[in-house]
């Protein structure tokens, strides 16, 4: 296996993990923002009618594993991808990638409270922070996913 293939496989795994995380957090965010009060009917109703509390541990594990994969790939990215991006003058693209790394690290930092709030979902004092923290984390993962996708389009590992 060539070096390029190895890093490409890692990047694909990182991307697939991110998709799983995106899906789980989007379901949860929809469930807390637009709670279903009656039996699910159409697709949107069914999408938000998930047992959201059961996603919390999976979201934490997926966030950590995706983060570790991204951190691993980042060593290669810094040399092989970022330098050509800067040489090509895509400064804003690189700026958004830098912001993405900040966003995912801060997201990592709030996972303990996120997990605790969801594991105590019957306690009404946590309803509001649980709801808004879930929405913030969903926003973070959407932002990070889109930025990662755009950066890969600008200069993926195969280029």
């Amino acid at each position: 296996m060539s070096v390029s293939t190895f890093w490409t496989i890692l990047l694909i795994i990182h991307g697939l993990l991110a998709v799983a995380l995106l899906g789980a957090l989007t379901h949860q965010a929809m469930a807390v923002l637009m709670p279903v009060r009656q039996a699910a009917g159409n697709f949107v109703d069914r999408f938000r009618a998930v047992p959201a509390a059961g996603y919390a541990t999976a979201v934490c594990v997926l966030w950590v594993v995706t983060f570790i994969m991204g951190a691993w790939i980042y060593t290669k990215y810094r040399i092989t991808i970022r330098i050509p991006i800067e040489q090509a003058g895509y400064w804003k693209t690189q700026g958004f990638f830098e912001l993405k790394e900040h966003v995912v690290t801060i997201g990592l930092g709030v996972l303990p409270a996120y997990w605790y709030f969801w594991k105590n979902a019957r306690d009404p004092q946590y309803d509001s922070p649980r709801k808004w923290l879930t929405v913030v984390l969903a926003g973070m993962i959407w932002f990070s996913f889109i930025v990662g996708h755009v950066v890969n389009n600008v200069r993926g590992f195969g280029s």
Partner: peptide, 27 residues
């Protein structure tokens, strides 16, 4: 702000919320 949601714990979630970490004041 309260949320009446489908997020209300399922039996499995309710079971997991009784884990020692989730009920620990120190945690």
């Amino acid at each position: 702000m309260s949320t009446t949601t489908s997020a209300s714990p399922t039996p499995s979630a309710a079971k997991s919320s009784s884990t020692s970490l989730a009920t620990s004041a120190k945690f």
